[in-house]
């Protein structure tokens, strides 16, 4: 598979191929077409970052602009999903969950359980997350642990173009509600992606690097940082195993535990704030289920307990850096 495309193109291709395959797949969101009701062109934007560009030309009214009304259209997507559609609703920035969270966590997530197994809600909510664009406190958060907390939701964090396409196709075909989070810094990342449609299953971690000395569990963009550090340290003889869970719910705890049993050392790298985070969650996993294998304290590398700052100097200090990851590894290796 020699063809290389970007993370952003991989997501566009997944949407395109699934809309082609299945009439019930529809896409909605603010400016996902761009131009509805105006005096210029349709598909003027194709999403705020052009991610859905071109889908309108191919799929017409099955991709639809919405007013700026997140509760309204996220709820509409959820309602349509209970009727047998497979809507993909774009929330633009995950920070906007605050204005529509009820439809996600009280409605979509709970229908199946509350209704005694009688409902299926195959909705996908796509949104970008993460710091690095000087987008400040309300457009930069890494809020995946909040969704991971909610039973009934699945949460997906692709870290490569290959995973982005395969996980999104899986999300669309999945019968449960899926929160699909795209790191905005990764949109331009290139990688090999098959042209044909394919799925990457949920709950199966990708072991990005193999090693016997230290286990690094990293999420989303942090997988790239962790891999870079692992490659650097490998030259010095410190062999890190880098695990990308790919989905935080379901979580491939088995692969993480197996690795900890082998290495006895764990570093968790999580771009979100530290309290009640994936970092604390994985650390809990290690101490409650693999304590006897640990040879050193568990280390976490996270953002601080602050909002995401605007100034570049502060934002750089906020995001877990390769240097901090390296220091954490060295402190226990």
């Amino acid at each position: 598979m020699a063809r290389k495309i970007t993370y952003q193109q991989a997501i566009n291709e997944a949407l395109d191929q699934e809309m082609t395959r299945d009439e019930s797949v529809i896409v909605m969101g603010e400016d996902v077409v761009g131009g509805s009701g105006g005096h210029g062109e349709m598909d003027a934007w194709g999403g705020v970052l052009g991610l859905t560009k071109g889908l309108y030309a191919k799929h017409g009214n099955r991709i639809m602009d919405t007013p700026i009304t997140e509760s309204g259209y996220i709820g509409a997507a959820v309602g349509a999903a209970t009727c047998g559609m497979r809507p993909v609703a774009e929330l633009m920035f995950i920070d906007f969950m605050g204005v529509c969270l009820d439809q996600i966590y009280n409605q979509a997530a709970k229908f199946r359980y509350m209704f005694g197994g009688k409902a299926k809600t195959p909705v996908v909510i796509r949104a970008m997350y993460g710091a690095g664009f000087s987008a400040a406190a309300q457009h930069s958060q890494a809020l995946y642990s909040i969704f991971t907390h909610i039973p009934g939701l699945k949460v997906v964090l692709p870290s490569s173009p290959y995973d982005a396409k395969g996980l999104l196709i899986q999300a669309i075909r999945d019968d449960d509600p899926v929160i699909f989070l795209e790191h905005k810094v990764l949109y331009t990342l290139e990688g090999e992606v098959p042209e044909e449609p394919y799925t990457v299953p949920f709950g199966e971690a990708n072991v990005v690097r193999e090693g016997d000395d230290v286990t690094i569990v990293a999420f989303g963009r942090m997988v790239l940082h962790a891999t870079g550090v692992a490659d650097k340290l490998a030259k010095e003889g410190i062999k890190c195993e880098v695990i990308d869970p790919r989905t935080t719910s379901p979580l491939d705890d088995e692969s993480i535990l197996e690795s900890i049993e082998n290495t006895g050392r764990l570093v968790v790298v999580d771009e979100s704030n530290p309290r009640c985070s994936m970092a604390s969650d994985i650390a809990e996993l290690a101490v409650t289920r693999a304590f006897e294998h640990l040879k050193a304290p568990v280390k976490t590398v996270t953002a601080p307990h602050t909002p995401v700052p605007f100034a570049k100097s502060l934002e750089d200090a906020y995001i877990p850096s390769p240097e901090k990851i390296e220091a954490a590894i060295r402190s226990i290796a």
Partner: peptide, 30 residues
């Protein structure tokens, strides 16, 4: 709730239902 009967649920959240019905309407329209 009984979806086979077209009953998409009583709802414990005041105002929880109206967005969902837009999805029902959208499905019928599409």
């Amino acid at each position: 709730a009984d979806l086979d009967k077209g009953m998409l649920g009583a709802n414990g959240i005041v105002g929880g239902g109206p967005p969902l019905i837009c999805g029902v309407g959208l499905t019928h329209k599409m």
